[in-house]
Simulated assay, not measured.
Amino acid sequence: MKGDESMKPKVYIAEPIPKAVEEYITQHCEYEKWQGEGKIPKEVLLEKIRDKDGLLNFGSKIDGTLLEAAPNLKVVSNISVGYDNFDIEALKARNIIGTNTPYVLDDTVADLIFGLMLSAARRICELDSYVKTGQWDREISKEHFGLDVHHATLGIIGMGRIGEAVAKRAKFGFDMDILYYNRNRKKDAEAAYGAVYGSLHEVLQKSDFIVLMTPLTNETYHLIGEREFDLMKETAVFINASRGQTVDEQALITALQERKIYAAGIDTYEKEPIDISNPLLQLKNVVTLPHIGSATLKTRCNMAMTAAKNLVTALSGEIPPHIVKELK
């Protein structure tokens, strides 16, 4: 695709990307990019996409309205492992390729999950505030104690690549026993980490720490709600680093307020950014992060480059390596 600029495919970059990634795209494509503050408004994206062959995107909704405005569009490349922003049927109907960025962020997200587990169990954020606000004026007492992570039982709901990276850390770093629930048995994970397969009910009942790592689908919407929190131990720590809509947030708030569970660590919410009036932000027994699962400089750069290569490969007429499974 090098050569005459007019022969290069036209793409739109809807997210800020590292300079190295932009330079790579320059070699292969003619492009425009969003340079405004915050998320690109939908009306701007609809205007900019009209004559484009490809779109590099982070989370903007890819639906029939957008696709109708882009008659030349051939590929949408997500800078994300998730793709619940894709209207799969609309993409299929127009024979448009959709790609994502698996593998690149697995270890980074697994690290964050353990950060949430440790922070919630040992009350790190709560006690950091306790020190900084001048309340530490005597020896700590039992009321400040937390829970051990090591040698506890970890339940993983969704044993995908990130789930397996969490299991690896749990087994070899913290000597944890591992239970898991997944659509399919993962014999490799069972052999490598001693993971034991169980029903969702069993995993929720028996686990000291519960990590939710399922994609958002019709089947997983509000997968964890009042009934599921009622099954958990009073000493359980619940972690969600998947998608906010996989949890009934009001049921989570009630479980924390009424001490049905010990604590939670949350990186994703039903509405993002979270509303300042959300009761989660008033609770001491929950660690709240601003959806930073993959947010390290190295990982985000690698994700953007992977997405750019998916985009360029598809526009060159070849099959990109990371087409989302529903579109293969």
Rank of each mutant, 00 (worst) to 15 (best):
R122G: 04
Y103V: 09
H150Y: 12
I49H: 07
E68S: 03
K19W: 12
K328E: 10
I62P: 10
K10S: 14
H151G: 12
T101V: 10
G198M: 00
L45F: 07
A90S: 09
G317R: 11
P279L: 14
L73N: 11
V11D: 14
V247W: 08
R300Y: 07
K74M: 07
E219S: 00
N182R: 08
R300H: 01
F238L: 05
L311F: 12
S129R: 14
G173K: 13
F114N: 05
F229V: 00
G82L: 02
N218A: 09
N78L: 13
Q245K: 04
T99N: 00
R122K: 10
G158R: 03
I40M: 13
L147E: 05
K206I: 02
L116G: 09
V131Q: 09
G163P: 02
I292V: 04
Y193M: 10
K10N: 04
V196C: 02
A165T: 09
V75W: 08
V211R: 01
T299A: 01
G244L: 02
N218R: 11
R169F: 09
I261N: 06
G158F: 00
A152H: 02
C301H: 06
N310E: 10
E139I: 13
R243W: 04
S119M: 06
N218G: 06
R161L: 09
G36P: 15
K233M: 00
K74V: 15
P9W: 15
I253M: 12
G293I: 08
F145N: 09
M176F: 02
K260V: 04
A110Q: 02
Q257M: 12
D188W: 07
K39W: 10
T254V: 11
G134M: 11
L315C: 08
